[in-house]
Amino acid sequence: MNNKILLALLITGVLFIAACGSQEAVVQDNEVSQDLDDVDQLADDLDVDNIEDLEKDLQEIENY
């Protein structure tokens, strides 16, 4: 009986370790994916392309 209990605990422990590792990776991956989206958004917000047409439009004012 004791051996069975020990075996059950060992299996549970191994399953638990595997579950912890993968679960953690999934949780973290979701979080890091969100961080990556945030960086994308920030890159868009700060991109000089947002004001790139100033040059051309100001030239139009210069030439009217």
């Binding site: 590792g21 890091v32 700060l46």
Partner: peptide, 26 residues
């Protein structure tokens, strides 16, 4: 602007590398 983006990217990169090490352990 690109320096700011680069620094934010470094955090994500390091976090992913940390996941990579976890996977190596799995």
């Amino acid at each position: 602007s690109q320096r700011i983006v680069n620094s934010k990217q470094e955090y994500v990169l390091e976090r992913t590398e940390s996941l990579e090490r976890r996977l190596a352990n799995t």
